[in-house]
Design a protein around this nucleic acid. Structure first.
Length: 385
RNA sequence: GCAAGGAUGGCAGAGUGGUCAAAUGCACCAGACUGUAAAUCUGGCGUCGCGAGACUUCGGGGGUUCGAAUCCCUCUCCUUGCA
């Protein structure tokens, strides 16, 4: 992977990540198609909205269709009929959120792995670093993530250290089985001429700089293609990494970590972020991102629009809460500058109306709008094309 | 014309003497959402007030009672049986 710094002012950079299903131009945003579908949109519609790569989740696919079936089918790309890059998340975060969202013991973490209750069936399941890699191998994804242990910002130092140790051990085990599954040696892994899926490790350590640093170094020593910023902030009640910050991610921590990761490696912000979060992350050198924000918010009538447009304003963007009364008679188009005909021509009043009557079309239009917004955000940040 | 059952907040629909400004659902208004158990969740929703609180409400009118959406009388209207 070769990355080129865009300007001297900040550390933003552009580059191309080569995968088995084509190149990814960075910075890049991967929408979440957790269950193998971008909610309320077909893949061709998503592609029209600028989507070039997606994220799916190991665990969800395993618990629903099953990776063995998908493997026999001919792989996830064939199953989804999506021939562009797919990143599969390890499943660690999903279990983490199961454990932390409810006070009940829905899951248990040991050095071996995680046992958890399947929310759909109530049955207990086990996920280990090895199982996660095997599932991802069956799926045949282009970018694979190692199982890690995310931790809450408020977790004690003692526990953070333990979680970090496990994260490193699991990363090591993940790489071992990854090599084995792909019939590779360590030197194959480091040889750029060997075509193979990419492997991503996730840096943890809460909001403690030293622990983040320690964790990053240990993972870099093992050697991966991609280093992720893990732990995000979707951990409910954990709105900010620093108490004094109003909300959002900690730009200083992101800058600090980006500098620790070698130039030729890819930096992945997992579960990030708002358009403002993304902008500041790109500026300090992060390359790829995913979050449910644009798709979920779209379904809730929360549309991203250019700064100054809309009814709520942030640093570099604005938002239309399209269900608001003020749009009832708004004849203005959803986005006059859109590359998508419907978004250019359909009025805000009609979109609001579609939401009010509960039409699927509302979700479709809103999701296209938000995905197009995110994809253009990446283009602007990277000066693509 | 006789008999029976009804009339509750924008709608549907609980409540049958005090804890009722009145459950619940819908609608409406506002907010949240960051590696998706999310087309979800939270809050508001008689009037005035930032607030404690005050005031006016359960078809109309009258009455019983310390106290009524709830009991009695009467009027209006609706539904259903019998003529």
């Amino acid at each position: 992977m070769l990355f080129e710094q865009k300007s001297k002012k900040n550390k933003a950079r552009t580059g191309i990540i080569n995968t088995l299903h084509g190149g990814i131009i960075t910075p890049a945003f991967f929408p979440d198609a957790t269950y193998g579908a971008i909610k309320s949109l077909s893949f061709s519609e998503a592609h029209n909205a600028g989507v070039r790569e997606i994220v799916t989740t190991t665990l969800h696919l395993e618990m629903t269709v099953g990776s063995e079936f998908i493997g026999n089918f001919g792989g996830l790309h064939k199953f989804l009929n999506w021939n562009r890059p797919i990143l599969t998340d390890s499943g660690g975060f999903q279990i983490f959120s199961l454990i932390h969202r409810k006070m009940q013991k829905l899951g248990r973490i040991t050095d071996a792995g995680v046992t958890f209750e399947d929310p759909r069936t109530g049955k207990f399941k086990i996920l280990t670093p090895e199982i996660s890699q095997i599932i991802q191998h069956n799926l045949g994804s282009d970018i694979r993530v190692v199982l890690d242990e995310p931790a809450l910002r408020t977790t004690s130092i003692k526990y953070l250290k333990e979680a970090n140790r496990r994260t490193v051990e699991w990363a090591k085990r993940s790489k071992e089985i990854f090599l084995k599954l792909n019939g590779l040696t360590e030197s194959d892994f480091d040889n750029p001429r060997v075509k193979r899926p990419l492997l991503c490790a996730v840096i943890q350590g809460g909001n403690v700089e030293n622990l983040r640093k320690e964790n990053a170094k240990a993972l870099i020593d093992i050697g991966f293609d991609i280093y992720g910023f893990g732990g995000g902030l979707p951990m409910k009640d954990e709105k900010s990494w620093k108490n004094e910050l109003p909300k959002g991610l900690d730009p200083e921590m992101l800058a600090f970590l980006a500098d620790l990761i070698p130039q030729d490696k890819i930096r992945y912000g997992l579960g990030m972020g708002t358009p403002d979060d993304l902008r500041s992350s790109i500026e300090c050198g992060w390359d790829i991102f995913d979050t449910v924000l644009p798709t979920r918010n779209a379904r809730h009538g929360y549309l991203y629009v250019n700064a100054g447009d809309g009814d709520a304003h942030f640093n570099n963007y604005s938002v239309m809460h399209i269900k608001k009364e003020i749009y009832k008679k708004d004849i203005y188009p959803i986005n006059k500058d859109s590359r998508i005909k419907d978004l250019r021509e359909i009025s805000r009043a009609y979109l609001r109306y579609l939401f009010k009557i509960g039409e699927n079309e509302a979700l479709r239009l809103a999701t296209m709008n938000n995905l197009e917004f995110y994809s253009q955000l990446m283009e602007k940040a990277g000066h693509h094309h």
